[in-house]
Amino acid sequence: MHSDAPMAANRPLRVVSNAACVLELSTPLSFSHPLSRRMTPLQKVLLEVAHRVEARAPELFARFVREGGCSLYFATALGELSSNLGMLEALRREELPLSPTAFQHSVHNCPVGYLSILMGLKNPIVTLCGGLDAAHKALTLGVADARRSARFSASGHASVFVLAADELREDASASGHLARAEALLLETCSEEDVEKSSDEVFLTGDVFLPSGGRNDAATPQWAWPWILGPDSGILPESVSRPGNGVFPRASETRWIFRK
């Protein structure tokens, strides 16, 4: 058995802009588009957090995402759950043909596909089914992408846009919540940048490499793995997130968000 490879450099990343949203029926949307009338809650909540991220840092969003063409990493654990369950029920009842719109929406990358269409983004987009660890897996791959890309860029700099979203099941929420999403725009930086800053959020630490096996499916009571969370804003102090209970062993998680 051998391992002869150099490890990827663990450059810190700055959180340029972030947003999180729990979508309710009454949530005002910050975007408007003719297509949005027919969009599902999952598609709407993802568009909403993406627009909020852009609104909080419009110049950097333009530079990194719209003009810079950075990659987007999107993860969803359950995808368009209602659409898929509806189609399975229609099949069970032999109510054919299926809805072509519902089938189009059944692919996991449909929400981020609509995001690319409505925001006009031709960037590389990678969609994962992250299972129970959706948001964290998107972050893992996105950070790895940015660190690798920085090594090969002339400027030594790279950025990445990480998003995650999931629909909420009716039986999991009695409060009218429909879906939730989180998005972070990250750029590589230096240790010096981290030391000099006093009010920004940085991500340091190793890429998370899950080493435990898991063979159970999610229950409706599963707690969605927020990264920074809906009301995080800027973290008040240096924190090390040991894991949120979703991972097999809490000590596996090695993200460190520090102010």
Binding site: A77, L78, G79, L81, V107, H108, N109, I125, V126, T127, L128, C129, G130, G131, L132, K137, T140, L141, V207, L209, P210, S211, G212, G213, R214, N215, D216, A217, A218, T219, P220
Partner: peptide, 27 residues
């Protein structure tokens, strides 16, 4: 319980000595 789209990935990790990074892509 929900069977997730990464079910095959998770099952293979328990059936084979696979403990490195693992991901399921759905595009």
């Amino acid at each position: 319980k929900w069977r997730l789209a990464d079910a095959l990935e998770q099952a293979l990790r328990t059936l084979f000595p696979l403990r490195g990074p693992s991901f399921t892509f759905c595009t």
